[in-house]
Design a protein around this nucleic acid. Sequence first.
DNA 1: CTATCATGTGAGTGACCACTTACTTACAAA
DNA 2: TTTGTAAGTAAGTGGTCACTCACATGATAG
Lengths: 242, 242
Amino acid sequence: MMRSSKKVGAQKSSGRERQASIIAAAAALFAQKGFNGTTTREIAKTAGISEALLFKHFPTKRALYAAILAEKVQLSELLAAVQEAAEKRDDGRVFTLIAKFRIHRGADPSLLRLLLFSALEGHELSDMFFRNRHRVFYEYLAGYIARRMEEGAFRRVDPLLAAQSFIGMIVYHRILHEIFRVPPHCSPEDAVAGYVDLFLAGLRSRSAAAKRGIRKAREGARPGYLLPSGAMGRPPGVGRVK
Amino acid sequence: MMRSSKKVGAQKSSGRERQASIIAAAAALFAQKGFNGTTTREIAKTAGISEALLFKHFPTKRALYAAILAEKVQLSELLAAVQEAAEKRDDGRVFTLIAKFRIHRGADPSLLRLLLFSALEGHELSDMFFRNRHRVFYEYLAGYIARRMEEGAFRRVDPLLAAQSFIGMIVYHRILHEIFRVPPHCSPEDAVAGYVDLFLAGLRSRSAAAKRGIRKAREGARPGYLLPSGAMGRPPGVGRVK
DNA sequence: CTATCATGTGAGTGACCACTTACTTACAAA
DNA sequence: TTTGTAAGTAAGTGGTCACTCACATGATAG
């Protein structure tokens, strides 16, 4: 009864803004400590609001998590740049662009942690997340490599395996430094150059002699590495999700 | 008062056996669900004992976790086999052995999960774990690659970066299949062969012409990749994290 | 037989968790 | 001014967590 202007709390924001600030706070915490390691109280405090308000925006903690994952699944402008280099058959540029992008730019440091956490914790959205955001790269790459093989520029190898190798180098590089905190022993630029050089050298035709004889395609049981047609569908229904 | 022969529980075991069975149960659960995602009740139940007994063997949940990590840090018999191939300069065998070992044999499936979980959750033993069990491989490899470079068998590249690339391919392969549950698209043998082929092709001297002229070592500003002197010396101070 | 002691347990304990309830406040349309 | 409603909160609630305590059991040494 004797309360006048006691409670101040957060000033009012529109639902959208508030939702965004909650997601930002939660993403940082989940990336740092995982889903089970983060409490809703912490999230609310970080976002500067009460726990109750948090639950007015997201019905459960899991729904909030799902919203974060869904939001992070926007694909980058990277593919356009790569596409251009790919059409010019500039192999060095194609792989350098991808490596550079994933190593310094576009490398939201919390994203890798979030992704690993969600996969390890068996979150049901992890698959979708992984498939849209990550797999796209190496399926696209596999398509490019297969094309260059047909053209005789690359040796015949399993293109999907080759693409995985390249992405593997890059991702492991990040895991080493971002997750295991291994201090870098050379500049990011040198690392990118080193990976691309090593990988391309392994792919290029050793001698022009290999150029004919491609049609044979002895791979036999090649699975399905032909370019994911509709690579990124619409982000599946996120809001609710139990 | 009316109790007569009610409680049966586990039959008595020696402290050692019991401790081992607790560790086994806990390791499986931690690997599956992480530290925060696993309850001591579950662990006790899986081990077939009461929670109270669990806490008689390990003072805290964290101590139990530490015991598991410490136990998993025994290094394998792998290095001996590799050493032999290395002395014969059998490059293919060296890399195939390592890849094979890490891909099908000696690949305790829970180990990768445990390692990733502990790194993500910032457990203080993660550093030690990683350094002893994992880093050894690529530091050893870097040494071997550097030697083969000196001998003119490999192109001049940054040996540590090359070693990381190779381990990266292999580890990413496992992460893809064990963590993200991507179905394998070829047999493990083909995968191993593919990775080794790709990697070695990238390393080998393109032409014999390169063989002389190594002494020049035009790298100029080469950083510090000269054979980790005491390959597994004391770790660089990485040990923060609560 | 009995005292000892490691091995074992059921039944807690306080702390903290995700989530709810009952309420207030600010603001804009009527 | 009234009033409808979205934005906001303090103070819970039941359940679960890591961890404890008082006591039971059984093998064995004297």
